[in-house]
Amino acid sequence: MNTSNEDASAVPSKKYVLSKKADDFFINIYRVYKFIARFFKEAFVPPYEWKEIIRQCYEIGYKSLPLISLTGFITGLVFTKQSRPSLETFGASSWLPSLISIAIIRALAPLVTALITAGKVGSNIGAELGSMKVTEQIDAMEVSATNPFKFLVVSRVIATSVMVPILMLYTGFVGMLGSFLNVYANEQTSFKAFFQSAFSTISFLDISSSVLKSVLYGFTIGITGCYQGYHASNGTQGVGKAANTAVVVSMFLIFIEEMIVVQFVNAIR
């Protein structure tokens, strides 16, 4: 129950095993590991903070919609427009819908959604928890015999893990709409024909692997933001730093995860 206040004395000072930087790095990894372990320990034990989980889902999902809609639509539209000339040289512009749909579902929608959520939601979580930490609101929850980790961290991480996949499917759909607009303007393809051709090439594995990796990205965004906020220090400066680090670290992790997942999915495809 006390891990929110791991003060400097919890870490052996003065003597370093390697060097100060290297030691701090490994201590940090250990703390992140403990943070994640605590999430899994507390996420599945009642009582559940349902109200807070639903509120967070709403905050994270609904408030990201405008930005996600715009980005998804434009990505689909522009990507189609830019791919058109090279396909036309081979007289293959009728392949556009299936090419685009594969690109969007397999790669673009998950990445665009994850990066936008990392920027918008990750920074928000880092700043919110960070300011609660430095103004002792988290300590206040702790001493009133309640569990701040469950209320603040577990609810947010569950919400991002649930909402990012849903937002990803939505981004995919909006992206296809953008793509359809370009195809319709050039070839007057009907809505039905476009989507039939688009979905003919998409397999169940494509969709399910994208949903699964979006769960992973959502989890990454939630955990990173919460970890940075929960361990913020140094007053208002620390709050800004927590928000900033949350975004940078989660984007970095998302790209690494993307590379690993692609290798993995291609191996079973």
């Binding site: 919110e128 609660m132 103004t135 002792e136 609101q137 300590d139 206040a140």
Partner: peptide
């Protein structure tokens, strides 16, 4: 525990 800066939950 009454905190130095009150620590009210501001949300």
């Amino acid at each position: 525990f009454s905190f130095q800066n009150s620590a009210l939950y501001d949300s």
